[in-house]
């Protein structure tokens, strides 16, 4: 693989998306409180997993996705396996639909992200409802998905620049 040829710098580049995903989990655990806590923190790890599963799946292997989800499960303090499952299913979906999205207009990809985020959100909602033994309101989950959807274009531009200029360089 290329990173073995390029030594430490290659390894660092290959690890970058995973590290961004893990940093995204830490961002979820910081008291950011957008607009005094009325706006939920966007799910940056979901954007990382979607983006690199689509444009460079080898940079976010399933082990990385699992670790990102596991860290999120631990950091949020809820049951284990919820976010790992949601993220791995999202990755599975994207990898299967990769050929459809490649080369498409960005607004199509953005819409694809919404579908993937809604799927992940529904899974988390279902799992948390099962865990609590009652049907929880879906609105908090939908709110977070929509905020993440709104953040996607901004982060995707940054990630594509990073991917082209640093990681692929």
């Amino acid at each position: 693989m290329f990173y073995t040829d390029q030594g430490m710098s290659g390894i660092a580049k290959a690890l970058t998306p995973t590290l961004i995903g893990l940093a995204g989990v830490l961002a979820l655990s910081l008291p950011i409180r957008l607009f005094e806590g009325t706006i939920p923190t966007p799910l940056i790890p979901l954007i990382v997993i979607f983006f690199w599963s689509l444009y460079g799946p080898d940079y976010v292997p399933s082990v990385s996705t699992f670790l990102i989800g596991l860290l999120q499960d631990f950091m949020l303090g809820g049951p284990l396996g919820v976010w790992t499952t949601a993220y791995l299913v999202t990755q599975y979906m994207i990898i299967n639909q990769r050929s459809y999205f490649q080369g498409r207009e960005q607004h199509v990809v953005w819409l694809g992200f919404l579908i993937a985020a809604l799927t992940a959100g529904l899974m988390v909602w279902g799992a948390m409802s099962m865990f609590s033994g009652q049907w929880l309101s879906i609105w908090p989950m939908l709110g977070q998905v929509l905020v993440t959807f709104a953040f996607y274009p901004v982060l995707a531009v940054g990630f594509s620049s990073l991917h082209e200029r640093v990681i692929m360089d």
């Binding site: 693989m1 290329f2 990173y3 290959a14 690890l15 998306p17 995973t18 460079g56 799946p57 080898d58 940079y59 976010v60 292997p61 399933s62 082990v63 990385s64 996705t65 699992f66 790992t84 499952t85 791995l88 299913v89 990755q91 599975y92 990898i95 692929m168």
Partner: peptide, 18 residues
């Protein structure tokens, strides 16, 4: 370009971790 994973067993490891 190749990164951390291998294309051949990507799906298999994904299903296993799932």
């Amino acid at each position: 370009r190749e990164g951390l994973g291998k294309k051949s067993n990507r799906r298999l490891s994904l299903i296993f971790l799932l």
